[in-house]
Nucleic acid binder design. Structure first.
Length: 569
RNA sequence: GCGCCUGUAGCUCAGUUGGACAGAGCGUCGGACUUCUAAUCCGAGGGUCGCAGGUUCGAUUCCUGCCAGGCGCACCA
């Protein structure tokens, strides 16, 4: 793997600093200036050194430039403004860099910043009480892309889905399910007050009856009493059946979406029945941060930055959800990982403080836990919000979204917003197969490049191996600009992974496509000047490769051709 | 009342962990198809970066206050 250009520039600066007898810097920020006159890279290192070196920024910049070692990629250095060092790359070197991109292929853009990190990434984790809805699709798109980004940086990522198959919500589902079973055959029933009224529970009940060959009230009555020694045990068995079916449905939709999880952790089986909450309480007790009050067991989370102390075991003897979560985070997550990332909905953000407090109390470094809040999605149909009411069981399902807009458009659209920002998802726009829809703009660039190759093959044109192609023919300003863009890609991936922000890739892709399309229209690749053709072909192939790699990080396909459907033709 | 998030072009949003005249897409207006796919391209117009202070050589970015919107503040999950 060749070193990044910016790393080599940083080495150059440090060499110059040593030679000039100036203090060293740990790192050196290289940014790509907005304006071409400011060069290809610019650094403010001279300004940051002004204080420790007790010299004027421009004077330091002069010394750095004077002592900078010759590098093949650097054409010249300039000092500008208050002390910026502007780097101008050599066009010949830039052009030759295309070869490196082509050689790296699918691996281009991967890095080592998270090499060896064991990372546990939890996302979606919808309650197993109903099908996935649109906000889950957003979390799935973001979480899966963050997982891909981190893997591209060498992290060993476990994508985890936590199934809350215990507690009040589980019980409400089980009671709803039982009521629907009785209702289906005409037995008397009372629908639970906090139950799940959605039609899917009734559907599930009908499936259950069919599967168990039950049709008459008498059969159902006998069956229900045969399920367990007491009504509670029977209810639990019914509930488990319903949860299994619902979770299977969630898993299926996620798989269609291209999202696979490595771990499906069950609150009931993997945390509660494994006795982890009790062990967590023991550990906290040993650390002296537990006290009893009013018959309940409290964790003194205020000692660790929380607003108020939190109950772990209620006065009725039951564990709180928090106690279970502390165990889940401490044993299951941190037991198998150095770093933990969780995506949560905005309704849970008040919860983050106490989990952080508990992890600090248990000795986990605060920076090892990241919580990303994924904001809500407002669904629009032709500009007007689609009303959703969970209480009435009315919401837009994730599978309906997939059916209507497709996997690529859905995922890409979710990744055009920062996770922290509320999202308006306009179905009309996401469905439209046109310019409005950035995913097609990017995919089209890839398809156009593949199409050039198709032409090459059809016309029987021979293309020499890249090692024999004279890349210095790539001298147009547009070509230089595109190559420099491609060279910045690994840094964008690294930064996106570090910030846990997949949307940066989506924006970067749109900008790359925005450079490619005008170039493609203005300059022909296939032409009589075969040397120039080969050089341009190398560039286009590199662009296609990087688009494919970047779309891969978003879980979006890179098609060889675009076929517009009749409706929008 | 307390806490978190958000406030950037008509709309939806970026803004590279404090940098050099503030960006994109859509929408509006005007143009370009005998060409490797026009799902494309070219051009024009559009802004007191919510408001007011502060830190800094330098602030859309950091700090404080205020205004507006969203969400959360259980011995619920």
């Amino acid at each position: 793997m060749t070193m990044e250009t910016t790393d080599r520039l940083t080495d150059g600066v440090r060499t110059a600093l040593r030679a000039a007898g100036l203090p060293d810097v740990a790192d050196c920020i290289w940014e790509v200036p907005r304006q071409a006159e400011h060069g290809d890279y610019a650094s403010n290192v001279a300004m940051t050194l002004a204080k420790p070196a007790r010299r004027a920024p421009r004077q330091i910049a002069d010394l750095i430039v004077a002592h900078f070692p010759p590098l093949p990629e650097v054409a010249r250095l300039e000092i500008a403004g208050p002390g910026f060092i502007n780097v101008f790359l050599s066009p010949a070197w830039t052009a030759s860099a295309v070869r490196g991109i082509l050689a790296a292929g699918d691996a281009y853009g991967q890095g080592e910043r998270e090499r060896g990190t064991r990372l546990r990434l939890e996302f979606v984790s919808a309650n197993p009480t109903g099908p996935l809805v649109i906000v889950n699709a957003r979390a799935a798109a973001i979480g899966d892309s963050v997982a891909r980004l981190l893997r591209a940086q060498g992290a060993r990522v476990t994508a985890e889905y936590y199934v809350n198959d215990a507690g009040n919500q589980f019980e409400a589902l089980a009671r709803s399910f039982e009521a629907r079973l009785r209702e289906a055959v005409g037995l008397p029933f009372t629908f639970p007050e906090n139950g799940y009224p959605g039609e899917y529970v009734a559907e599930l009940a009908r499936d259950y009856l069919t599967g168990h060959r039950l049709s008459t009230p008498a059969e159902v009555d006998t069956h229900l009493t045969s399920l367990g020694a007491d009504p509670q045990a029977a209810l639990v068995r019914l509930g488990r059946w319903a949860v299994r079916r619902i979770v299977d449905g969630q898993r299926r939709v996620l798989a269609e979406y291209g999202v696979e999880f490595d771990a499906w952790t069950s609150e009931q089986a993997d945390v509660r029945e494994a006795g982890l909450p009790e062990r967590a309480i023991d550990e906290l007790t040993k650390r002296g941060v537990i006290h009893e009050q009013d018959g309940a067991l409290w964790f003194r989370s205020t000692d660790f930055g929380d607003d108020k102390d939190r109950v772990l075991r209620k006065s009725d003897g039951e564990l709180t959800y928090f106690a279970v979560d502390v165990a889940f985070y401490h044993f299951t997550k941190f037991g198998a990982a150095d770093r933990v990332v969780t995506l949560l909905g905005p309704d849970h953000h008040g919860y983050v403080g106490r989990i952080r407090a508990a992890m600090r109390a248990l000795g986990h470094p605060p920076e090892a836990l990241d919580v990303l809040i994924v904001q809500l999605v407002t669904l629009l149909r032709d500009g007007t919000p689609v009303r959703m009411s969970k209480r009435r069981g009315e919401f837009v399902l994730m599978e309906e979204l997939l059916e209507e807009v497709g996997r690529d458009a859905a995922r890409f659209t979710f990744l055009t917003r920062r996770h922290d920002s509320p999202l308006e998802f306009d179905l009309a726009v996401a469905t439209r197969q046109s310019t409005d829809n950035p995913v097609y703009y990017v995919q089209y660039a890839h398809a156009r490049i593949r199409s050039i190759w198709k032409q090459i093959a059809e016309q029987g044109i021979a293309v020499p191996p890249w090692s024999e192609v004279d890349l210095t023919r790539l001298s147009l300003p547009e070509e230089q600009q595109i190559i420099k863009r491609l060279l910045g890609y690994p840094e964008v991936v690294a930064a996106a992974a570090h910030a846990l922000e997949a949307h940066r890739i989506a924006y970067w892709l749109q900008e790359l496509a925005g450079l490619f399309h005008p170039y493609y229209r203005a300059h022909r690749v296939i032409q009589d000047d075969r040397a120039l053709m080969s050089a341009r072909l190398a560039l286009c192939t590199a662009v296609g490769q990087v688009i494919k790699n970047a779309l891969g990080l978003l879980g979006v396909s890179a098609p060889d051709s675009m076929t517009r459907s009749e409706a929008d033709a």
